[in-house]
Design a protein around this nucleic acid. Structure first.
Length: 138
DNA sequence: GCCAACGTTGGC
DNA sequence: GCCAACGTTGGC
């Protein structure tokens, strides 16, 4: 089981839309960056990911589940896709500023390489951000 | 709106 | 295969 972080502009794909897609999920499209694609190819069905709103909001707002193994994008088979489904919202969204203010999270890819759109998250980071977001440990 | 950081492209 | 130029992203 691995953990990830998926970035999106709420104008193009928002948490609201992700929630409406329900348990069936939606393909996570538009990744056209080799490092991000490499991370996506390393995903497995059942992995979990944070859902991050960039742009004006800049906060981790929810948790999604990777519900397929990676498969080729029918639009362009050189790039991978996975389907993701909303799991739960964070009761208290974790802002980028809060992540940066937390010394235990300075190593997070979100801080170190803000531009990467599909990022790995360590188990320690996952648990801490969940707790900061108001979710109980599982 | 600016610009630093990063990725990609293309000439050599 | 290198690297300068260029484009894009995203935080500020």
């Amino acid at each position: 089981m691995a953990y990830w972080l998926l970035k999106t502009e709420p104008d193009s794909w928002s948490w609201d839309q992700q929630k409406k897609a329900g348990a069936k999920g939606e393909p996570w499209t538009g990744v056209r960056n080799t490092a991000a694609a490499k991370n996506m190819r390393a995903m497995n069905k059942g992995d979990l990911a944070f859902f991050y709103h960039t742009g004006g909001e800049k906060a981790i707002v929810g948790v999604v589940k990777i519900i397929t193994d990676p498969y080729p994008d029918p639009e362009d088979e050189a790039w991978p896709l996975v389907d993701v489904a909303a799991v739960e919202a964070l009761p208290k969204p974790v802002a980028l500023a809060a992540v940066k203010a937390e010394p235990k999270l300075v190593q997070m890819t979100l801080v170190r390489n803000a531009r990467l759109s599909v990022q790995p998250v360590s188990e320690a980071e996952w648990k801490l951000v969940r707790r900061m977001g108001g979710l109980k440990d599982k």
